[in-house]
Nucleic acid binder design. Sequence first.
DNA 1: TATTGTTATACTCTATAACTATA
DNA 2: TATAGTTATAGAGTATAACAATA
Lengths: 162, 162
Amino acid sequence: MAAVTKHRTEPELSTVDSLAQISFLVQGMLERRAGEDDFSLIQMRLLGVLRDRRPTINELARLLALDKSSVSGLVDRAERRGLVRRGPSPVDGRSVLVSLTREGRALARQVARRFTADIDLLLEPLSPPERARLTTLLSRLLVAHAAKRGVDLLATSDLAGR
Amino acid sequence: MAAVTKHRTEPELSTVDSLAQISFLVQGMLERRAGEDDFSLIQMRLLGVLRDRRPTINELARLLALDKSSVSGLVDRAERRGLVRRGPSPVDGRSVLVSLTREGRALARQVARRFTADIDLLLEPLSPPERARLTTLLSRLLVAHAAKRGVDLLATSDLAGR
DNA sequence: TATTGTTATACTCTATAACTATA
DNA sequence: TATAGTTATAGAGTATAACAATA
């Protein structure tokens, strides 16, 4: 009962179902891991986006596809917990620049590490070449989709904390 | 510039990233489609679960991994919109049985149809044998994961409305 | 005038705790 | 007593609309 080669007899889901289900599964893992540190998924996304950016509230709203008022509240709550800070913009007196605190960065990294471990475990049933094939197929879908639309690829890539 | 065979040069994401991103992408599609009919994702899940079940509030709470009080409110709001109904249990005077109304069923079907179209479009870059390979790989992950835990496979399979 | 961000308001979603009515 | 469901309460998350400050 070691590893592979008995998947021939499984009923196998439809492609739509398998994609839908894997998305729920992966999101559930991320949500659970974030929840262990009392994060919501959207808070995790916020921290992820801030890993290599110092955006204004407006830019955050675009990156997260939320209204600026929603982002304002999101940042409020994260700031209250010491995870992010608001700073002045040197070029526009109306703007604020949101950035991670050290604590926020550390926490985001922790969650990302645990989440990655979950995914590694999930991938265990596949052999290395099978994983490579899966990665290639998914990447092609993502790249093609990003090409069709704008460049959401980068925005969403931060969600998992990389 | 028709279809395939230029994916060799792409940078290609890591396996973790590709899974994380595809999950956000698919969830976003589902959320957007549900939102067109003013559904939330959880309302969509509720309707999906009810497609072939007539559960009690407690059973719903287990299926959706929510507290029974959360489910109570969820069902309240869906009932107020005429999507589900509460009925008496013939075997336990304390229980209620939740079921879809015709309108709820029709609406769930509509959303599922549009969502499926999104996924089909997403899959366009892959040839039929490539889709089959992707489906097989994902199915194996899902089946293995379900086997490791209980049988969440069935519960989550309804989420997309099948 | 237009834009950036905040605030007021309203609603959904969620959980905990207390309650009721059955069992 | 124990269980099923509801309700009261509290809080996060979301959007719309109105606002203050700056451009």
